[in-house]
Write a protein that binds this DNA or RNA. Structure first.
Length: 707
DNA sequence: CTGAAGGCTAC
DNA sequence: TCTCGTAGCCTTCAG
């Protein structure tokens, strides 16, 4: 093994900047004066990577603590909650940290240094931040010492050839890789993006640990006050507004270079951690154009692209999404995203873009009772393509991952989907909630707006909901109200629950009322869709209760907030919309702009085809009249004859003429072409004559019939 | 409690 | 009794 490992070192050319080489200056191996051990915090599979590294460093001075996912944010929480958290309390006891102690040295600790080893992605940065937050919250002094490090791993590996002659290079920063890509002239490199620590191959783990000094970056403290302020800014639950402003002032065009800056807490938060916060918003807050989050957009893109004829098992679809839309996260969240897009019980989607074939969950459990992806099937809801039109596919701005085209920045449905299906997401600094509206109302509103007519009111609307939605003027919100009736002097019957009140939760609530002896008993006759609950109450209690009192006492109202409607706007900035009208009006402007773009695009294509026919006709005509001859002429000569007749190239050459078969040189064929040309001309005229308003109206009309 | 993310333990 | 696959659980983030 050692032999292999040394060979690997010989062929490897690691790229490091000068600054980087100089910055880490600690000696750990066999340093007798360094009596304390070092702790590595990582997740479990990463711990295995680290363990392989220990065959190089030895285990005498190293220990590993595998962390499970996101650590607890310990800032301003009850001490008990922190103690109850297994991860946090284990780290504290493993290190031997004592509460209340102000550390001036790490000698009393069981490990003298801590190295955080997390994936080289933005969630990895989040985890680093949460660990820093732990130390800063209870032992800020320790961060002033030579204590905390991060273990960096490459993000890109390139390889050419195989075996001992293979050329391998690792890049630790995107800038370095981009620079190499720009200047590299050699072909045949295999490029591998190292998505997480699990991607690292065992010999590589040893290699990186052999070069420990180059892979460890110390968190330095340069300005205590400022740094402690940054940790607080990032994690204090009460400082949401500050986080907003911090993120708003971020200029992402500045390249991160923690090597050059020599990692310190301040630059970590301002240059690295902030990338997580930005990404957190991007994945959680939809775009105004299509009301979708990136993961949902990837699902839709894959279904459009694969064009599955029949339903497809969700598990299989997930595989396609990884491949076609470059989904880089865990399967659990993707599975939930797909299920969420197909659900259609009350309180879920108004127009489910995917079909729920199988058990996709019920209102009884808020859809949490959906089956696993290996049991359930889905396909595009036929109506989806009536909303996300094929004609727009050509004008979308497609993103690129690793050189491959993936989903567009946003789709342009003909309806403001942010007002159709629930919008709900939690980012950093912002979260968002937008209730659904009635698609028919939305269509009417757009029609009126286009026709400059007086417009209608838009109010939240839940498909199949039997209760009432009323406006609460005082609190500027809507109230959804369930339905009850008095059956007799001791019984009330509930036939509808307010939206977002799932039956099971409601039973728990009734159980509580029973424990309190407020009600005697209740019987449930609910189906998967309909609510039917009989509650028996003492006569003397019921007769004193007004209808309003019953509604309040039995939680038959939920509130629908209209004060947190955030979406990414056209300029890729988060915008807070003051009401539903601002959302739909903004959408209409964007959509009209893109209808115009679509029209121009279609016209360009038609004009291109028209030219194609004209030139072809000219050519055949010239040949028939013997103005162009090819007997005994070479290709160059024929081309110069074509050019001399003013006939244009198509797709950059004359192949489309040279490849015409001999039997096409006839008057009949010419007449056929003339027919096609006339049709094309007609199409162009028709397209020109149809205004974008008319196109939209006719598409809305077609959609209306299907809804 | 919500939903797109991180991750593991226990069954 | 051991192994394998995964359901179920815990965490972030704002309101």
């Amino acid at each position: 093994m050692i032999q292999n490992y040394l060979e690997l070192v010989d062929i490897v050319d690691i790229e490091f900047t000068e600054e980087y080489d100089n910055m880490v200056d600690i000696t750990i191996d066999n340093d007798k004066s360094f009596s304390l051990s070092n702790g590595i915090i990582s997740h479990n599979s990463a711990a295995s990577t680290a363990k392989r590294g220990f065959s190089v460093t030895g285990t005498d001075y190293y220990g590993i603590y595998p962390l499970k996912g996101k650590p607890l944010n310990v800032r301003e929480i009850a001490l008990q909650k922190m103690r109850d958290n297994e991860e946090i309390s284990s780290i504290i006891s493993a290190l031997g940290l004592e509460f209340g102690k102000k550390y001036t040295s790490t000698r009393t600790l069981r490990y003298g240094k801590v190295v955080i080893m997390s994936d080289a992605d933005c969630d990895g940065s989040h985890i680093k931040g949460l660990i820093i937050n732990l130390f800063d919250t209870y032992w800020p002094e320790i961060l002033q010492l030579d204590f905390l490090y991060e273990f960096i791993t490459p993000i890109v590996k390139i390889k050419k050839g195989s075996g001992q002659t293979a050329k391998v290079k690792y890049f630790y920063r995107l800038v370095d890789y981009r620079k190499w890509k720009e200047t590299n002239t050699e072909s045949g490199y295999y490029i591998k993006w190292i998505k997480g620590l699990g991607t690292i191959e065992p010999p590589e783990a040893k290699l990186f640990f052999k070069d420990l000094n180059k892979h460890l970056i110390r968190f330095n403290s340069t300005d205590i006050q400022k740094e402690r302020g940054m940790v607080d800014l990032a994690f204090n639950k009460k400082r949401v507004e500050d986080r907003k402003n911090w993120l708003l002032s971020y200029n992402p065009s500045v390249e991160i270079d923690k090597f050059k800056m020599k990692q310190n807490y301040n630059s970590f938060f301002n240059n690295e951690f902030i990338e997580f916060s930005m990404a957190d918003n991007i994945r959680s807050i939809p775009n105004i154009s299509d009301g979708l989050k990136p993961s949902q957009r990837k699902v839709l893109y894959t279904l459009f692209k694969r064009n599955f004829k029949d339903e497809v098992k969700v598990e299989l679809l997930m595989g396609s999404i990884l491949e076609l839309a470059a989904y880089h996260h865990g399967p659990a969240s993707l599975e939930q995203t797909i299920i969420g897009m197909a659900q259609n019980f009350i309180g879920s989607n108004t127009i489910n873009l995917l079909e729920p074939n199988g058990e996709y969950g019920t209102r009884g459990k808020g859809g949490k009772d959906a089956s696993a992806s290996r049991y359930i099937f889905t396909k595009l809801n036929p109506i989806t393509r009536d909303i996300f039109k094929n004609d727009d596919d050509a004008i979308l701005d497609y993103l690129v991952d690793d050189g491959y085209q993936i989903e567009p920045k946003f789709y342009l449905p003909i309806l403001p989907m942010a007002l159709i299906n629930n919008v709900e997401g939690i980012g950093t600094g912002w979260s968002t909630y937008i209730p659904p509206f009635n698609p028919s109302d939305i269509i009417t509103y757009i029609e009126n707006k286009i026709k400059n007519k007086k417009n209608i009111k838009l109010e939240p609307w839940f498909k199949n909901f039997k209760g009432k939605i009323v406006y609460d003027d005082l609190n500027k919100r809507y109230i959804s109200r369930g339905i009850f009736s008095r059956i007799n002097k001791t019984t009330i019957k509930i036939t509808e629950l307010p939206v977002y009140t799932w039956n099971d939760k409601y039973y728990e609530f009734l159980d509580k009322l029973m424990d309190e002896k407020f009600i005697k008993d209740y019987d449930k006759y609910c189906t998967d869709t309909d609510v039917n609950i009989d509650i028996s109450i003492a006569e003397e209690t019921l007769e004193t209760m007004t209808d309003d009192m019953i509604i309040k006492k039995f939680n038959l109202e939920t509130y629908i907030s209209m004060n947190n409607m955030n979406l990414f706007d056209e300029n890729e900035k988060i915008h807070e919309y003051k009401d539903q009208y601002e959302i739909i009006d903004t959408f209409i402007d964007i959509r009209l702009k893109y209808y115009d773009l679509r029209k121009k695009n279609i016209l360009n294509k038609l004009e291109e085809s028209k030219k194609f026919y004209i030139n072809k006709m000219k050519f055949i005509n010239c040949v028939l009249k013997k103005e162009i001859v090819f007997e005994n002429k070479n290709k160059d000569n024929i081309i110069s004859q074509i050019e001399s007749r003013g006939i244009e190239k198509h797709n950059g050459d004359y192949d489309y003429l040279l490849n015409i078969s001999l039997i096409s040189f006839s008057k009949e064929k010419l007449a056929d072409l003339k027919g096609l040309y006339d049709k094309m001309k007609e199409d162009i005229e028709k397209t020109k004559a149809t205004s974008i308003n008319e196109i939209w109206l006719s598409e809305l009309n077609a959609l209306k019939k299907k809804i």
